[in-house]
């Protein structure tokens, strides 16, 4: 006998009434994690919105768009694999992280053998808020990028945490694809403002009173 439901769609699944023990999910059944950053309006800093699980950056991009921009204004998106983000320690809110971290000068030194490349720098101003992009630096390593970030952005206060990502590891939306961020007018049904409940209640009460 299969499980009986009020929902014909469930009945069509022919689910067993007494199922076997479920098997535990294996590692990575839910795929890898990516971190997503949105630009809320033109020229605004890219800001962290949250993670997604995806098999590759293209799918992560689609999930990030659906999950985080479906209901909020957005004009651009960046996605990076979680493991490509270098994270500093978190500090107390009264202290700048740049004043606490010790940067290994040797590692940070310009390394002639490695070619310099761009790194994106993100600051967290307050615990519980979101990391925001502050700028791009050029360096030959993550540590070098952090040292350079301290020079360029160290005076910005407060900074409780810094993320560093190689610019090449960031998957970005294209300026030419701007149209993908538009929401059509006919989707008003998912806005609270589309429901004029009070009008209906007032009319109902007037009718009741008139009776």
């Amino acid at each position: 006998m299969s499980l009986q439901s009020l929902d014909p769609r469930v009945n069509r699944l022919h689910l067993p009434e007494n199922p076997s023990e479920p098997v535990a999910k294996t590692e990575l059944d839910q795929l890898e994690t990516y971190e997503v950053f949105h630009q809320k309006k033109e020229n605004a800093a890219y800001t962290y919105v949250g993670p997604v699980h995806a098999p590759n950056e293209e799918v992560a991009f689609l999930f990030g768009k659906e999950q985080y921009s479906r209901r909020f204004a957005c004009t651009g998106m960046w996605v990076a694999e979680t493991r490509h983000v270098m994270v500093t320690p978190y500090t107390d809110e009264a202290v700048s992280v740049y004043d606490v971290i010790r940067i290994n000068q040797e590692n940070a030194m310009e390394n002639g053998e490695k070619t310099a490349e761009a790194y994106e720098i993100f600051h967290l101003k307050k615990r519980g808020k979101a990391h925001a992009h502050v700028g791009t630096v050029t360096a030959t390593s993550y540590e070098g990028a952090l040292a350079e970030a301290k020079k360029q952005f160290g005076e910005m206060k407060p900074v409780v945490n810094v993320w560093v990502i190689k610019a090449a590891d960031v998957f970005r939306s294209e300026a030419d694809d701007k149209d993908i961020w538009n929401t059509t007018k006919d989707k008003m049904y998912r806005e609270a403002t589309a429901y004029r409940v009070m009008d209906k209640i007032t009319k109902f009460k007037e009718e009741q009173a008139a009776k």
């Binding site: 994690t33 993670p51 979680t82 493991r83």
Partner: peptide
Amino acid sequence: ALLSPKAKYVKPLA
């Protein structure tokens, strides 16, 4: 089918 053999789990950052 989608899982890359190079995938490695890292817990999300924040």
